[in-house]
């Protein structure tokens, strides 16, 4: 493939890209542009699709809305709570599973199961686990003399409950990705490190971590983006409410409320746009950090 692109080859290339591109443009790109524009509608007749006035009113409005601020805060807490723990846990489990252990395939399946199970089913199970009177979790906590906690009804515990479930749910996917990354690290480096006198821990910090860094980087970007977009878990776990007293109100949930419940299309678009900017900034920050610490072969 040393040929230079010609008009003919470019055209042929586009032809292959067309089917996927068409779908992406219609269902992703066009709506993104429309919602971006919509966030600037200040006076809008949505029955006749006539915009009377553009402006920044929506941006001013949502930042003055205490619910939106709560949503931002909750989303931030959620990301902070889920992402680091999930990465550490899944990396740890992946390293264990990567060892030559018996039934490794069985455990891999077990850990991957939550990921393929529907969020609604998972949430039903977890709302039972979290049940304040009959829940499994409170039952275990009872062994240690801890009084029953109203996980889903106490505003102080709703967010932790959501975080725990989300970590558990996301674990499988991350483990699989980490396992793939671990299996890409050649056995010879470990043998060489052994001969060079590196203990198991030294081998982990000096070989596994640096050579796994592209995977860690990938998983952390995906996890953060997914964390900011959290919605289904909230909706399903709290039966279509954003938790008690908005304690689990996330940005996407806020968008959903504005769009489907209050028909405030402008505000919903604005919130979506703000979320997009936040995710964009975080991704840029990660790319900058990644360039310094991530080693690519």
């Amino acid at each position: 493939m040393l040929e230079k692109p010609t008009w003919k080859s470019t055209l042929k290339g586009f032809l292959y890209l067309l089917p996927a591109l068409l779908i992406l443009i219609i269902f992703n790109i066009y709506p993104i542009i429309r919602s971006f524009l919509m966030s600037f509608y200040t006076d809008y007749d949505y029955f006749n699709d006539i915009v009377h006035e553009y402006g920044f009113d929506n941006f001013i409005a949502i930042f003055q809305d205490p619910n939106f601020i709560t949503a931002l805060k909750n989303t931030g807490i959620f990301v902070l709570g889920v992402v680091p723990i999930s990465i550490f846990l899944s990396m740890g489990i992946a390293v264990l599973l990567n060892n030559k252990i018996k039934l490794a395939g069985f455990f891999r399946t077990i850990y991957f199961l939550p990921f393929v199970t529907s969020v609604v089913a998972v949430s039903i199970v977890w709302s039972w686990i979290y049940h304040s009177d009959y829940g499994l979790l409170n039952y275990f906590l009872g062994w240690f003399g801890i009084d029953p906690i109203a996980w889903l009804n106490d505003p102080n515990y709703a967010m932790p409950a959501l975080i725990i479930m989300s970590i558990w749910k996301g674990l499988g996917f991350n483990i699989i990705i980490f396992l793939a990354g671990l299996q890409n690290i050649g056995e010879q480096y470990y043998l060489a490190a052994k001969v060079d006198g590196a203990s198991a821990w030294k081998r982990f910090t000096n070989i596994t971590l640096p050579l796994l860094s592209p995977t860690i980087f990938f998983v952390s970007i995906i996890s953060i983006i997914n964390g900011f977009k959290v919605f289904d878990e909230v909706f399903a776990l709290f039966n279509g409410r954003p938790g008690p007293a908005n304690s689990a109100l996330t940005v996407v949930y806020y968008i959903y409320q504005k769009f489907y419940e209050e028909w405030q299309f402008g505000l919903a678009s604005t919130a979506a746009f703000v979320l997009f900017i936040i995710i964009f900034i975080f991704t840029i920050i990660q790319l900058v950090i990644g360039r310094r610490f991530v080693h690519y072969n």
């Binding site: 010879q188 480096y189 490190a193 001969v195 070989i207 860094s213 072969n297």
Partner: peptide, 27 residues
């Protein structure tokens, strides 16, 4: 192997790809 005090050259060299030559030798 960690404690035997041997030096080994592998068929595919197994140089640590993320470390510079100096750091490889210093490892």
């Amino acid at each position: 192997a960690e404690k035997r005090g041997i030096g080994m050259v592998f068929q595919n060299y197994a140089l640590y790809p993320h470390l510079s030559v100096l750091k490889n030798i210093m490892f």
